[in-house]
Amino acid sequence: MTALAGDPLQESKALQGRLLVLLAGVFWSLAGLFLRAMDSAGDWQVVFYRSLTLVVFLALVLAFRDGRRLPQTLSAAGWTPVLAGFFLSFAFVCFVTSMTRTTVANTLFLLSAAPFLAAFLGWIFLREGVRRATWVAMAVAMLGVGVMVGDGLARGAPLGDLLALGAALAFALFTVTLRRKPGADMLPTTVYAGLFAMLWSGPAALATGQGLAVSTHDLLLCIALGVVQMGCGLIAYIVGARHLGAAECTLLSLSEVVLGPIWVWWVFSEVPASMTLAGGGILLAALAGNALSGLRRRRPPLGAV
């Protein structure tokens, strides 16, 4: 149903949606801050405990929301959320391991290429049409990615940038998988993602000698990552996105990419390199331009996710 101009109720819902999606980006932007505050926890330990906390938190939310209908909710969704969760778990792993190997700015800027990768993969696998403006934006975004990856090579830290691109690709595959079943419930998908991420990170932590023993300080930060940064961010985004179009959601969630480097610069004096800022600026301009062109094209329908 399209929002009627001047309808106070619909305008109020749209405003609430914008605030919630913006808030989701703020929650997500805290990842680098929490990770930089860790004392000694390794990347695989962080992935494991963040995923464990996320699973417990979202399972409680689902149980509160669905009650006795929870088993039916999980079974009715079919295999699509499971496969989507599988891809999302790789994004979880690549995201954290990238941040431990490069700057927060590099990770977040490169991760913001995910919408363009999703558009490209949707065009290939789902035969979804891609607007001319999006093709142009993708070309510009690739220029920004090239500048940032080249900077990573020059600094001798290419692995972190490649992992960030891996996170973007995994998130794009997650998005395309969900498009096969529009309207799929995101919360069960994220629970599956957390479970898969635990399956990857637990054995990896043991195999690499990190083990699963962490300090109380680091464990509390992992819990904050699972509940506040990821869990609360997802809930705010899912609820807010119901009242907005995809272009507006993309634009508002850029708060994560903008605020993330600012937090770690403010608290830990981690200053992004000039080439990182240049490439990130090009990528953000492409993303914002594509979203704004989508907003100008037509007013987004209410209820779009």
Rank of each mutant, 00 (worst) to 15 (best):
A5C: 15
A5G: 15
V21N: 00
L23Q: 07
A24F: 00
S29N: 04
G32W: 00
V46M: 02
R50F: 01
T53E: 12
L54D: 04
L60I: 13
A63Q: 13
A63Y: 03
R65T: 15
G67Y: 12
T80P: 07
P81V: 11
P81S: 00
L83N: 06
A84H: 02
F86M: 14
V93I: 05
V104I: 13
N106I: 12
N106P: 05
L111K: 05
A114V: 09
A118P: 05
F120S: 15
W123T: 08
I124M: 13
L126G: 08
E128R: 11
R131I: 15
M142H: 11
D151G: 04
A154L: 14
A154V: 14
L162V: 03
L169C: 02
L169D: 04
F171N: 06
A172Y: 06
L173W: 00
F174A: 12
T175L: 03
T175Q: 05
R179S: 08
R179M: 06
K181N: 11
K181M: 15
P188T: 04
T190V: 14
T190H: 10
A197W: 00
L199R: 09
L206R: 14
G209N: 06
T216W: 06
L234T: 05
L234H: 12
A236G: 05
T250N: 04
L251D: 04
S253F: 11
S255Y: 02
V267N: 02
P272F: 01
A273I: 11
T276S: 14
A278Y: 00
I282S: 00
A291M: 06
R296K: 15
